[in-house]
Computed example of a mutant assay.
Amino acid sequence: MDIHFLGTGSAYPGSERDNTSICFSNDDYHVLVDVSGNPCRKLKQFQVNLGELDAVVFTHFHIDHIYGLPSLLWGMWLEDRKKPLRILCDYRNEKKLQGWLSTMEADQWPITFSVKIETFDGDRVSELLSGGGMSFSCFKALHSVPTVGLEVRCAGRVLVYSSDSEINARIGEYDHIDMLIHEATSARKVVGNHSSLVEVVEKYDVERIGKIVLVHLSDKEPYEEEVEKLRTSKLIIGEDLMTQHM
Rank of each mutant, 00 (worst) to 15 (best):
Y204K: 12
N19R: 03
D240T: 06
I177G: 06
G9H: 11
F5W: 07
R157T: 09
F120K: 04
S36I: 04
D178E: 15
V152L: 07
D18G: 15
I236C: 15
G149T: 00
L235C: 09
S163W: 06
R81N: 06
I167R: 06
I63S: 13
G122Y: 00
D28P: 14
D64V: 06
S25Q: 06
E228F: 10
C154K: 00
E221C: 11
G131K: 04
G133V: 01
I167M: 02
D18C: 10
I22H: 00
T119V: 08
E183P: 15
G132A: 03
S21K: 04
V191H: 06
W77K: 15
M1N: 07
H65E: 13
L159E: 09
R17T: 08
G9S: 08
F120W: 04
I237T: 10
S130M: 01
M179S: 13
V215H: 04
W100R: 05
E199N: 14
N19L: 04
I66R: 02
G14W: 08
L6C: 00
G75M: 15
W109E: 03
C23L: 00
V31M: 07
S126D: 12
R170D: 15
H60W: 06
S162F: 05
E239R: 12
R81V: 01
V56W: 03
V158A: 09
L85G: 12
V48D: 07
I171V: 03
S163R: 01
E166V: 01
L230M: 06
T232H: 14
E225H: 04
E224T: 00
L128H: 10
L85W: 02
A169W: 03
S36D: 00
G14N: 13
I167L: 00
L73C: 12
L235N: 10
L73I: 12
C89E: 11
E221H: 14
E105R: 03
R124H: 15
H30N: 09
S10I: 05
F58M: 00
H62D: 08
R41K: 13
H62L: 09
G7E: 03
V200K: 07
V35A: 02
W74L: 11
F136S: 04
I3T: 09
T243F: 04
V48A: 04
V201H: 09
L129R: 08
M104A: 11
E183L: 08
